[in-house]
Nucleic acid binder design. Sequence first.
DNA 1: ATATACCCGACTATTTTAGTCAAGTATATT
DNA 2: AATATACTTGACTAAAATAGTCGGGTATAT
Lengths: 141, 141
Amino acid sequence: MKLSNKGRYAVMALADLAKFNTNKPISLRDISLRQGISLLYLEQIFLKLKKNKIVVSARGMNGGYNLNKDASEIKISEVLNAVDEKVKTIGCTKDSKKGCNGKSVKCITHNLWDELELHINDFFNKKNLGDLIKGRNENTI
Amino acid sequence: MKLSNKGRYAVMALADLAKFNTNKPISLRDISLRQGISLLYLEQIFLKLKKNKIVVSARGMNGGYNLNKDASEIKISEVLNAVDEKVKTIGCTKDSKKGCNGKSVKCITHNLWDELELHINDFFNKKNLGDLIKGRNENTI
DNA sequence: ATATACCCGACTATTTTAGTCAAGTATATT
DNA sequence: AATATACTTGACTAAAATAGTCGGGTATAT
């Protein structure tokens, strides 16, 4: 059970964006250099963030990205969903026909995974980008 | 972020073992049939469970497995660790040299993933196999 | 003897993740 | 107008993890 780089990078990049936030757009090149994330990979990630209205883009020279709303209003869950980093714990309902269907007939562990999923999503729903900025100190990069 | 089948199967199989618990060993064949998990895959999983002293085996005809202690004393975290299903959220400290090292210099998201890991592990530490048995009803398989 | 069932390492196929590439389009600056 | 910067898009590839199989054991009850 692990978190993917894509999800991690998305949050890192947005935190960077929130930290250096000005009225001017910030280029992916800058974020790439500061956070050590491949530029090409960042491009892919930011397309999704843009589609999900988490960032707004400015094209051309001096272009880049800005947050679409205040950092404190961007939940981590929102970010992870945007880059398709969903929390999935249950696989038992996939081959529906026989066995656990999650409704009338449940496997003995079904509720456990359900609870776990809620537990994790709850965590991501309670944290926002603003929290990350607030919590940092002088050793934070 | 998802849970692997291996971890899921391990918990399912042990719950099955706890449910049908008698003084006689229970064969993997029975568990395989009841839970719909490949016998060969179960063998692989139970070798690890055995190495970690979660089950004891009886070889030969009428052989099989039994729990090594009371179901209420087997934590889910123990089971998942036994089959190498660790919770890993942090990848930023891998290329140690520059950037986040998790100690003197931390990336802005480091604490977040640390907290998440604790949050998930906490969940698994609080749940045991006994809880699953207690919580079931007549529709549970 | 023989069938059952655990034991063990190696192997393969599938899926997911991670990251790259090529070929654009838009815009500020010179 | 030319140019460099930087976003846009879809497809492509490589690497890693997962899921599951295979073959050839050994132990034991009947």
